[in-house]
Amino acid sequence: MMHNPGSRTATFVFAGIFLALSIWQLAAGHIALTVDGLGVLTGAGLTLALFSFLYDDNPLFKIAEHLYVGVAAAYGLALVWFQVILADLVNPIFFSTATIRQLWVLIVPSVLGILLIMRIVPKFSWLSRISFSYVVGFGAGISIPAYIASQLLEQVHPTLAPALGWDGGDKFILIAAIVLIAVAYLVSRRGGGDLGMNSWFGPTLLSVVFLICYFQGVGAASLVLVGVAAVLFYFFFSVEHTGAVGAISRVGIWFLMIAFGASFGFTVMARISLLIGRMQFLLGDWLHLLKI
C-alpha cells in the first residue's frame, strides 16, 4: 500500500492536517480535553481519514473503514440482543412471573435459533436447514398475500382509475399521450422498421406533452396509465418489438429513462446532504469556523 506514492502523500497530508488543526483548536481553547471534546476529535479524525480516499487509497482510509466495520457489527449485535433476544426471550423466561404454560411457546424459536447457530459446526451444519426452512417458508408464505394485496392490486387500482373514468380531471392528457404514441409509430415506420433510437422528434413531443400536463395540472393519472402500459410493453418480450409494439415500447424506454434520471438525481442529492452534514461538522464543531 505505502509503495504507492499517492497513498503515502494522502496518509501524511491528511494525518498532518488533522494533527495540526486539532492541536490548534486545543491550544485556542475551542475544544477541551473532555469526553465531548474527544468525541469531536474522534469524529473529525474518522471523517478526514475516510475523505482521504478521494485523493488515493491509503492506510488511513483502510484503518477507518475496518474500524467502522467492527463497530457496526457490534452495534448490530447489541441492537439484536437488547431489542429481540433480551426483550422477547431472556426477560420473559428468566425475569417474569409467567407460568410454564405461557412460556412453552418460546421453546420452539429458542431451539430453532440454536439449530441455526449449528451452521458453524461442520458436522452438524445440516441442522440449520430446519431453521432456515422455517424462516424461508414462513417468509415466502406471508409475502404472497401481502405482495398481491399491496404491491399488485393496490398499484393496479389507481393506475386503471382514469381508464375507468375515475380520473376526475381533463382527458386532454390521455388524448395527447395517444397522439404521441401514434406519432412515435409513424416515426418508427419512416425509419424502415428501425425504432429510430436517435430520432429527436418523439422525445421532443413527449416533453411537450409533459409540459402541457404540468401547466394544466390535471390528468396526471392518465399519464401514469400511459407510462405503466408503455413500460409493461417494453418488458414484454414474447413479441418482437417492431411496428406498433416497438413504438409503444419506445415510449416505455423514455419513461424508464426519466425514472432512472430522477432516481439518480434523488440519490445524488441524498449523498450531497450527507456531505453537507459532514462539512458542517468539520467546519463548525471541529474548526469553529461556522456560526450556525
Binding site: 469524529g43 475516510l50 473503514e65 474500524l67 467502522y68 457496526a72 456531505l275
Partner: peptide, 21 residues
C-alpha cells in the same frame, strides 16, 4: 461510540459516494 464513531464513519462513507457518483 455510536455518535462519534458509527454515525461519523457511516455518514462520511456515504458522503464520499457523492463524488464517485
Amino acid at each position: 461510540l455510536y455518535t462519534n464513531v458509527f454515525v461519523a464513519a457511516d455518514a462520511s462513507m456515504f458522503a464520499i459516494l457523492s463524488f464517485f457518483i
